[in-house]
């Protein structure tokens, strides 16, 4: 794609959320893109995973999830909160789904944000060809990258993909991104032991330029959506993590020397 026609670039999103305060600095608007390479069992946005437009039952009513938009169409929506971005040092965060699964749209949208002087961030698994990521990085101020597990087999078991490509990309991104923050969804039965957290945080600390690590405690706010999509929630019965569960893990992570926090 050429950036010449970036405003007409089409993409598929399923939500735009304002006043987001946990996904990058300041007050942000999150654009949720549809489609993901991974199928994480804990995913709180299961409606984001399929690229296809779907029906989901929400509070007894059928809701169509996903719509095709151009950058031109959604920029005005994003710019509505520009005063709040300016005052708070906020901006736009792309989430999903996986933005890298729609590279042309992601690149065009981020470019449009930069044309308007907005701070840009992206929450991403990093599971894509590096050529794709390379196109995105010039327009991205902050890469929020998940590292979920250091053991590839367990990674695959819980997310359907091995972690090799992700870990490889992590190093390249760290070298080239303006800023990279590593985020770890902490999921009971998956990665909530001190050993697992230590392994991830040591890896994160070994990446050049990475200074921060966020531990995101498991919650089950997305559980109803699985039902709404007619899917089974595989983590049924697992209790959300509270602060007391998280503090020992935070202490472990901090040993890596990184600045660590609970929550985004």
């Amino acid at each position: 794609m050429s950036l010449e026609n970036y405003l007409d670039q089409k993409g598929r999103i399923f939500d735009i959320q304002k006043y987001s305060i946990h996904d990058g600095p300041g007050i942000r608007t999150i654009v949720f893109l549809k489609g993901c390479y991974l199928r994480c069992r804990w995913c709180c946005n299961p409606e984001s995973q399929e690229y296809d437009i779907q029906n989901m039952t929400v509070a007894g009513k059928t809701k169509v999830i996903g719509r095709d938009v151009t950058v031109r169409e959604i920029m005005p929506e994003i710019l509505k909160d520009i005063q709040y971005y300016r005052r708070s040092g906020g901006g736009v965060t792309l989430s999903g789904g996986e933005s890298l699964a729609q590279p042309d749209f992601t690149e065009a949208l981020l470019y449009a944000c930069k044309v308007n002087g907005l701070h840009t961030a992206m929450e991403s698994t990093g599971h894509a060809k590096f050529e794709v990521i390379e196109r995105i990085l010039p327009h991205l101020d902050l890469y929020l990258m998940d590292i979920k597990h250091m053991d590839s087999q367990k990674h695959q078991e819980f997310t359907t993909q091995p972690n090799g490509l992700i870990l490889e990309n992590a190093r390249k991104i760290a070298e080239r991104a303006k800023e990279l923050i590593i985020r770890v969804p902490v999921i009971p039965t998956f990665n909530n032991t001190p050993e697992e957290i230590r392994a991830i945080s040591e890896f994160a600390a070994s990446l050049p330029n990475v200074k921060e690590l966020h531990l995101l405690p498991y919650h089950r706010l997305g559980q109803d959506k699985y039902e709404g999509l007619g899917r089974k929630y595989l983590l049924d019965g697992i209790e959300p993590l509270n602060n007391d569960d998280m503090l020992p893990l935070l202490a472990v992570a901090e040993k890596s020397g990184l600045k660590c926090q609970i929550g985004g």
Binding site: Y19, I21, I27, Q83, Y84, R86, R87, S88, G89
Partner: peptide, 22 residues
């Protein structure tokens, strides 16, 4: 929960400023 941390409070203050800017 929207005002629980200092960083959330900073954002809340920015929110008021942003509203007043308009």
């Amino acid at each position: 929960s929207a005002l629980s941390s200092t960083s959330a409070l900073e954002k809340f203050v920015s929110y008021i400023r942003g509203y007043f800017d308009q």
